[in-house]
Design a protein around this nucleic acid. Structure first.
Lengths: 182, 182
DNA sequence: ATTACTCGCGACACACTTGTTGCAAGTACT
DNA sequence: AGTACTTGCAACAAGTGTGTCGCGAGTAAT
């Protein structure tokens, strides 16, 4: 059952339109066995997103984002999430297309955590005072997404990638000597 | 025919697994009429990606990325691409899953253009000397992706979004007063 | 050995999508 | 009016994925 979920993750990551047959084959079981655990394909998908959401929540929670200094928390959260996201790439990218109340709730809570963290970071002077926190969060998500993609293909440990993500988020790529906006 | 492509774009953007029936309905024609223009579903997808690739190439080309000053070129390219990408969201995100040689070639050329532009920017001091150009490019793509998503949902003109993308790419969100990496 | 449980396998019905064809109606052009 | 072209419509065949069922084999516990 855990085996099936992991197989489903692998298969769907490679091809979101994969069939139950392919999932079963990847799990090393018969298709009917998959149906024994998950009545419908939809149920399998739901269980997958629920599982990933729980892993996601745990990754964020264990980073103590609310108590640690903002910069430390940011780094910890990033590293933890990257570790989970490289293994549950497909399931964790299923946020928009949900009729899954639990996963939606979890994602919303994490979103709030993220916003709180950014607010603290701004007050601590880590983020600029004029930073648009919503745009900041979306860029942060996108950076994690990109870093996880690299980890999934080229490898690389979560710590190093997290460092790069945080560094990019805070400094960007521009030279500090050359002012920018026209 | 143009009508069908535009309808397909809209429908597939909402649901990549949409059927020919749904596309036809969105285009206001019968399903058989769609098949008259595009023999198979695959042919429709190919035409869509080819069309988007051409729009993409034109958007980049018209920005004169090779001759204008790096910062100006970066801004121009960003704005132009954003304009196209808000209208051809689905088709332009079909880069990986290609057996489409023309589109793959176009995307590869644009990738080279982007790399050249970044190289010039680095030599001009716009980008830091130690910037990893590949990671820079991927972040840049991700920022455009995110900005286009916002434009598609919340609106907002391409110029303002381009400014924000370039600003984020170069400066990030961190305060210049607080040094960052532990 | 008997019982209970799980799994693989083959089979089936069902629904859906795709792609094709023939025919009738409509429109534009001469 | 006549011709050429396009479209909608209905119907069809074929393939594919889904979900269900029953049977037989294998395994573990009593």
């Amino acid at each position: 059952m855990r085996t099936i979920l992991e197989a489903a993750e692998r298969v769907f990551a490679a091809n979101p339109a994969a069939t139950m047959e392919q999932v079963a084959q990847a799990a090393g079981v018969a298709r009917t066995t998959v149906h024994r655990r998950f009545a419908t394909r939809e149920a399998l998908l739901e269980e997958l997103t629920g599982w990933a959401a729980r892993q996601f929540a745990e990754a964020v929670e264990s980073a103590r984002a609310d108590t640690a200094p903002p910069l430390v928390a940011l780094y910890q959260v990033t590293a933890n999430v990257l570790r989970v996201k490289t293994d549950w790439w497909f399931a964790m990218n299923r946020t928009a297309d949900d009729a899954h109340p639990e996963a939606a709730r979890v994602h919303a809570e994490i979103r709030d955590d993220c916003e709180r963290l950014f607010r603290r970071a701004r007050e601590a002077g880590v983020l600029r005072a004029d930073a648009d926190l919503d745009w900041t969060r979306r860029v942060y998500y996108a950076l994690i997404h990109e870093a996880a993609a690299e980890a999934a293909s080229a490898g690389g440990d979560a710590e190093a990638l997290a460092t790069r993500v945080v560094d990019t988020l805070l400094r960007g790529f521009g030279s500090p000597t050359a002012p920018v906006i026209a």
